[in-house]
């Protein structure tokens, strides 16, 4: 199943597995297994990053977004998301409220190639951009519906995917109200060292977990020239994110669904869903 079986098993490991089989067969209870597992956990290599010290949050200031799409572009490059497929960890939406009470929403190629002026200015009442990404909800419906535990909320508040464990049922894609998840059909170099067969798994924004745990900013935040994306630690009272949350009036997307997103928005319009 997982490659573990094909590995050569050392004698000590063999004894350990043997013991566990006997215990498991005799009792079959989760309690005993959890004891075994906890003893294994103590051997775990802990890096310098302590996830108990952080709780990440994201602010999107839609009033500053200029719709250049550099965020979506940088995201694809950083995370090796195929450019030739309609898959986006983050994307920019354009809302144009027309004078005849009609709303035009678009996001051609996620905004990566920019936007075209296909509606004359005179017909437009107001217009603005809204960048979107995974909200890393505190009550993530995607995690709730995963049947095997292949996606989870970490201690530092990020929703991640286990690419080696995902069975590719796509229930999480159905469960996400924000369209943040997609199905990665093909293997990408990014996942290669970790995936047995590659591809065939769900994927989404991780707030660049591999960067933020090294003290870097997410690629989209770093790429944004307008300061429309702000990332920071909710546990740090002086963080960039907390400074905004303390002062501005903010909202989240689809608050009525009770997902408790941690991507907060400034300047949300009623048309934005």
């Amino acid at each position: 199943m997982n490659g573990d079986l094909t590995m050569s098993i050392s004698r000590r490991e063999f004894t350990r597995i043997g013991c566990r089989v006997i215990i498991g067969a005799a009792a079959g209870t989760a309690i005993i297994e959890s004891i075994v597992k906890n003893s294994l956990a103590s051997e775990d290599k802990k890096g310098e990053y302590d996830w108990n010290e952080h709780y990440w949050g994201f602010v999107v200031d839609t009033t500053k977004c200029i719709g250049c799409g550099r965020c979506a572009n940088a995201c694809k490059l950083e995370n090796h998301v195929p450019f030739d497929e309609h898959l986006y960890r983050t994307w920019v939406e354009r809302y144009r409220v027309l004078k005849k009470e009609e709303v035009k929403i678009d996001s051609p190629n996620g905004g990566i190639d920019g936007f075209t002026n296909d509606i004359p200015k005179e017909d437009i009442k107001k217009a603005f951009y809204v960048p979107k990404l995974c909200n890393h909800c505190d009550h993530p419906p995607c995690v709730q519906v995963c049947p095997v535990g292949a996606t989870y909320l970490t201690e530092d508040g990020v929703v991640l995917i286990d690419y080696d464990y995902c069975i590719g049922c796509r229930y999480c894609i159905q469960g996400c109200p924000y369209g943040a998840r997609y199905f990665l059909a093909e293997e990408t170099p990014h996942h290669k060292p970790h995936s047995v067969l590659g591809g065939g798994v769900a994927d989404k924004c991780t707030w660049c977990y591999h960067r933020i745990t090294k003290g870097l900013l997410p690629a989209c935040v770093q790429a944004c020239p307008a300061g429309a994306r702000i990332f920071g630690d909710l546990k740090d009272p002086d963080s960039a994110v907390n400074k905004i949350l303390d002062k501005e009036r903010i909202n989240v997307l689809k608050p009525d669904l009770g997902t408790r997103p941690k991507a907060y928005y400034i300047g949300l319009d009623r048309e934005v869903r």
């Binding site: 997982n2 566990r20 089989v21 597992k37 690419y163 464990y165 591999h210 870097l216």
Partner: peptide, 27 residues
């Protein structure tokens, strides 16, 4: 008991090693 990965359930209902995998993706 043979097939479930060792680190499963280490922190929650998921494979604990997956957090390390996610942290180790190239910058």
């Amino acid at each position: 008991s043979l097939v479930v990965p060792d680190s499963f359930g280490q922190y929650g209902w998921y494979r604990g090693d997956s957090v390390v995998d996610n942290r180790n993706f190239p910058v």
